[in-house]
Amino acid sequence: MKIKRRERDDVIILDFSGEITIGKGDVELRKEISDLVFSEKKKILLNLRKVDFIDSSGIGEIVRSFTTIQKNGGVLKLLHLEAKVRDLFTITRLITVFETFENEKDAVDSFKD
């Protein structure tokens, strides 16, 4: 799993590619979020377009990221949930927790509200 970090209009976008599973991505995500909290970044968007498989550990790490950012006064949102990933978020009702977007501009603009 790879994470590429970029910034657009004060929003940090993390572009993921590959799998987010136990031992393959969950630890990298935790490190990235710790770094963003340390840097006092408050607006985080996880782009999951190129995530082809996620397991319950990966889902758990995204939830942990959400609560960590929130506890530090920030907001974390999700972009481009592929159909099977969206299914997992729907079954677990996490879709009711996260703000999700299919368009990057809409997602970035939503942080201005």
């Binding site: 397991d55 550990s57 942990r64």
Partner: peptide, 22 residues
């Protein structure tokens, strides 16, 4: 049940639930 409000933001406890659902 990981879908209950008190469990929704826990980082663990979804694996077997999801396996049973599919």
């Amino acid at each position: 049940n990981p879908t209950l409000p008190e469990n929704l933001l826990k980082a663990t406890g979804r694996g077997i639930f999801l396996v049973r659902s599919m």
